[in-house]
Write a protein that binds this DNA or RNA. Sequence first.
DNA 1: GCGCTATATCGCGATATCTCGATATATGGA
DNA 2: TCCATATATCGAGATATCGCGATATAGCGC
Lengths: 100, 100
Amino acid sequence: MDIDKAISALNNPARRQILIWLKDRSNFPPALPEHADLAGVCVGYIQEKSGLSQSTISTYMNALKGAGLVLSERHGQWTFYRRNEEVIAQTLKKLSEDLQ
Amino acid sequence: MDIDKAISALNNPARRQILIWLKDRSNFPPALPEHADLAGVCVGYIQEKSGLSQSTISTYMNALKGAGLVLSERHGQWTFYRRNEEVIAQTLKKLSEDLQ
DNA sequence: GCGCTATATCGCGATATCTCGATATATGGA
DNA sequence: TCCATATATCGAGATATCGCGATATAGCGC
């Protein structure tokens, strides 16, 4: 867990908002039937919700992933991103312990 | 409390380290006798400890102040900076509530 | 193979941050 | 007043981030 990379990833309102949206699957359109059992949300849904461009969201999701804050899984043509609760919790804990 | 400005201020290892050092006055040389009763640490001590330039530290302390994370008080030629515990706590709390 | 869809990567101009040295300002003392 | 000290501000080059459109890649179905 690289606290520096994590804070850097969090230092952007759109990326923070994505993490917040990902807390609740119902912030996005329902999954396709064939994806019903998969965790996470595909890039397209996140892009649509955010209003940012596809390339921007892809880059942002990769930044969040690089910081460990999300996990990704490829299924066919889709990449599903979901929160990495452990790393998110660790990051917030470390920040609090350091600064508080 | 502007969470965006706060995270931005925290998105720098040197500024985070300064906040950590400021938790304990003994991280710095003892205050001059005439300042013994004042809260906070002068810019020069912080500069010395950090190894960064005087102008950089002055700018950094101003950024931390702009984010509300520190308070400053001028006494004669010296500016004393100290942590703003309330805002630091609020910031960490808001971050946790939003993201956790 | 071809075409379609989903995602990733590239290249870019705009803007922000980093950190510095030089300079300005403020204060206190001789 | 003049000088020394402490801090703030200015200006700049280097680097990073932002967000885009264009293009590349990967997987699926025919």
